[in-house]
Amino acid sequence: MAQMRIDKISYRYGHGTPFEIAALRDVSFEIGEGELIGVIGHTGSGKSTLMQMLNALLKPDSGTVYLNGADIHKDKTSVYRARFQVGLCFQYPEYQLFGETCAEDIAFGPRNMGLPEEEVKARTERAADFVRLDRALLQRSPFDLSGGQKRRCAVAGVLAMQPEILILDEPTAGLDPAGRDAMISLIRAYRQNTGATVIFVTHSMEIAAAVSERILVMDHGTLALDGTPAEVFSQAELLEKCGLAPPFSARVLSALRARGYDAPDAFAPEETADALCALLRAEEKQTVC
């Protein structure tokens, strides 16, 4: 049985105003335990709305979201449980920090879960260690931290709930290359250590290609594509219709395919370079002969 099943959900914003929009239209898919999923789509495609459906923050106008086989909107308890089982970290989460100390802030989620105080403390420290937030900083105000530290502190607040499914909405937005790489390895490590399902939204095709095992492409509130990075990024035309472009490496290789070469799929620059070298060598041999 799938860990999560999204069954024909639809949702509209702003009923009856001149600004009404359909955010989701008849979206269905399943999520298996331990999957690593990247969600892409341009702004307004419905990806953020979809993420808020998965932890019951929003209730679909029609359709159902099943978590471990049960409707997450069955009653109030199931809604609260879904919030903790499915941890959602918003975009720019550092703007939601409020605690007097970092420890207080990280402990907010676990406390709301009603855990005993020792457990809350243990989880807080474990989460801080995990995001590499210095223990000494735990007693400082989160507003004294640097930008990157704030982001990690906020992510720790979600990790401390130890969700079975972790969702991150654009976790790398606004970070410089070093901060971005640190965040990506953090996402990978959480999944490796806990076996949790991880879903992340990103605007970067390169990150989606490099990190995820499965990619969902959202377009105008519908699920336009669903597959492995190779499957998704080979659909250049469809992606373009969704306002997206495959990563640079994929574009180079598909341009060569269009010229009649037998180029494989690759995303990492090293793999792409290997593939190109092979093509160049084969071509040289041919011209010599």
Partner: peptide, 26 residues
């Protein structure tokens, strides 16, 4: 912000008064 804190289990519309106040602070 409301949604983000609700995602961390903030109780804005139910629960004890002290819990709700704490959630308001957040």
């Amino acid at each position: 912000i409301m949604n983000a804190q609700k995602a961390r289990g903030a109780k804005l519309d139910a629960g004890k008064l002290s819990e709700r106040l704490k959630s308001m602070v957040s």
